[in-house]
């Protein structure tokens, strides 16, 4: 474990806690894409099912359990508990256009042609683009609640922090994971526009608003 990865994981953890806090305190899931959240459940379930047969560490195990359970809980909050506050008419990105290509990519690019390894590759590819319905929604509405932007910033920072972690591991352990690295670069790049507005507006105390 190095600090980049630790802070990356903590940032990921923080993003989910911020999202839960937003939903609970405003009693609303306005501005949150259900499709993106559903894709995250798919990502976590596909990647972390190994927690039942591969023991790594207590840290690794607890994080996996937390990510799977919290993401399912968020779906419950959106679909059942605060259902009236979710507006599917602005959450229009076609998620199947993301899932299909990721299945194909996972079948081609994987470290071993076995079910768990293909599933792992799939989860890495899907994670890299899972934020698109959310960003698309943001683009459509042109503005976001500040708390939602903090959620997105923490989520974007997580994969960005994994990049120095991979560089560090390349030099200290000699390992390189090209699938995760390429997908991680794509994932981080998707946040560039968002981060620009976040740093120039939200962190200066202004509202998150996209130029018309």
């Amino acid at each position: 474990m190095n600090l980049f990865r630790l802070f990356g994981d903590l940032s990921h953890l923080a993003s989910i806690l911020i999202l839960l806090h937003k939903i609970q305190t405003t009693r609303s899931c306005r501005g949150i894409s259900f499709k993106t959240q559903a894709l995250y459940v798919t990502v976590f379930v596909a990647r972390y099912l190994d927690l039942f047969y591969d023991w790594v560490s207590l840290y690794n195990f607890s994080m996996k359990v937390f990510f799977i359970s919290s993401s399912i809980y968020i779906l419950y909050l959106m679909k059942v508990r605060f259902r009236p506050t979710h507006d599917p008419s602005i959450d229009t990105f076609r998620a199947e256009y993301l899932v299909g290509p990721c299945v194909v990519l996972a079948l081609i690019f994987n470290y071993k042609f076995t079910f768990p390894e293909v599933l792992w590759s799939f989860s890495i590819f899907l994670e890299s683009v899972a934020i698109l319905p959310q960003l698309f929604m943001l683009q459509r509405t042109g503005e976001a609640e500040t708390i939602t932007t903090h959620y997105l910033a923490a989520l974007g920072a997580y994969r960005a922090l994994y990049i120095p972690n991979w560089i560090y591991r390349y030099f200290s352990e000699g390992v390189v994971d090209p699938i995760a690295v390429i997908a991680g670069l794509v994932q981080t790049a998707l946040y560039v526009d968002f981060f620009y507005v976040y740093f120039t507006k939200v962190l200066q105390g202004q509202k998150f608003e996209l130029p018309a």
Binding site: M1, R5, D9, H12, D50, D54, V56, S57, N60, M63, K64, F67, Y111, W120, Y162, R169, Y170, E173, G174, V175, V176, D177, P178, I179, A180
Partner: peptide, 10 residues
């Protein structure tokens, strides 16, 4: 270097 995925990453 070796290529592959470190199993300890999340």
């Amino acid at each position: 270097h070796t290529e592959g995925r470190p199993k300890d990453e999340l």
